[in-house]
Amino acid sequence: MGAYILKRLISAVPVLLGITIIVFLIMAMIPGDPATAILGSYATPENVEKLNRDLGLDQPLINRYFIWLGNMLTGDFGRSYSLNRPVLDEILDRFNATLILAGVSFVMCSVLGILAGVVSATRQYGFADKAITFIVLIGISVPSFFLGMMMILLFAVNLRLLPVSGMYAIYGGGDLPDLARHLIMPATALAVVATGVIARLSRSAMLEVLRQDYIRTARAKGVDERRVIMGHALRAAMVSIIPVLGIQAGFVLSGSVYIEIVFQWPGVGRMLVDAILKRDIILVQGGVVFVAGAYVFFNIVVDVAQSLLDPRIKT
């Protein structure tokens, strides 16, 4: 097992390098002079020239890439112009918030989605199945940012049950119950679409497995139906559900950008959007590489989980 994890970690290196190359190439597409783009059109020529030198923009593309990569490897992601602080510090401050939001949301959509899929499959064409299918259809069609706004209107403004936005109350609060109260709406809004997708997939995966001969074997030896479903069938269906969980994690992470804006959540997504609007290229660049890298590592976790589940995968 350890060898397999190590192998997967090593295979992540070229992917991470690829990510940095892609981000670097995209940033090299900036039309005109990047220093002017960063500093704005009112910048003095001296400042532009200084920045060009600081960023190494006077050097050939390939040198610039290796300088940038080398800096990142030593933990230097550059300095944000709009915030006037190191990019990495800013990201690390905000990454926790994104991780909490996306993490809770991911757990919600995985658990609810798989449960809904299992119920749907075992009652195929029954009332529960039709109801779930209908709710799922609505769920995957509502844009998360619109859903978030409607939730604010209903639960925060009209019913006054939950706080409108933010991560903690401004006065008092700061503890776990306070965080939970602030987290319910954004995490739910973020989870809805992924829940629907996972529910659909789990349903069809379960139906496929329930047709298999080994399910009949389990029934023939007198195993209780609940154990047949939750033990034998779901265990086998998880083999095709887990890769989709990995893909959906990417969608949850993506959706968190919208949700962080709607709910004023102090995460990396909101930082990125603000940075783009302020043309803070260095901050965008660092943020994108950091989050994409985190996602690569999450996918390694998914692969390892998959290999633990399926003994047929050669480790």
Partner: peptide
Amino acid sequence: DMLMAFPYILLALAIVAALG
């Protein structure tokens, strides 16, 4: 495969950031 290693919105944001 490299492009697919990104959560899609990060890539979109990077492109918009570059192009404005």
